[in-house]
Design a protein around this nucleic acid. Structure first.
Lengths: 91, 91
DNA sequence: GCTTCCATGATCAAAATCGAAATCGCCAAT
DNA sequence: ATTGGCGATTTCGATTTTGATCATGGAAGC
């Protein structure tokens, strides 16, 4: 599923143009990105939680040289699936 | 950031009622949930990728008894942050 | 705005994943 | 059709993940 498909889903339910639907998707992802970059946590019950968290590991590896590489301090975004997405049965 | 705040962001940019804005958010999360539950991968460039993946581990723990608990086979949803969200500087 | 309801956080241990690097093919987005 | 983001690849060890249970605070309704 890609952006256009999400926009299509929106069009099928609400009376909006494709252009508007795409604007909506872009707007929401943009706002969420900004919030996460700002260190804010995003919680949408039933869907999941996005959470910026400090990166604790500090060692990586250079695939070419095989050398250990220092992983600079930073943060990573973690997504925790909500209840509805957690218990997925194997088909 | 919670659902209402996302809806507000939508209202601030597009001429929609709060009710409609909330509908939009619910609709999108619902569609995305369905896609993921259906085993579909969701890729939004610049934001991130949601991917259902088989759960490989089969052991959990009962917090009360401390006993190991068999975890039935299943899937879990993994979110991989896109480029814009990946390298977050430490403030 | 306030209240109710229910999803989420914490906890345990151990196995699995992540993280970085550089590069190319593939595909999402425009 | 063009652009450039994303997956995969390798290695190794520290971090994370994973479910059950209860209390709590966030989400939703009035």
């Amino acid at each position: 599923m890609i952006k256009i498909e999400i926009a299509n889903a929106l069009m099928q339910t609400l009376p909006v143009s494709k252009a508007t639907a795409l604007q909506v998707v872009d707007l929401l992802t943009d706002r969420m990105k900004k919030a996460l970059l700002d260190g804010e946590r995003i919680e949408i019950r039933g869907f999941g939680v996005f959470e910026p968290r400090p990166r604790k590991r500090g060692l990586g590896r250079n695939i070419k040289t095989g050398q250990s590489v220092e992983i600079p301090k930073g943060k990573s975004i973690r997504f925790k699936a909500g209840k509805d997405l957690r218990d997925i049965e194997v088909k």
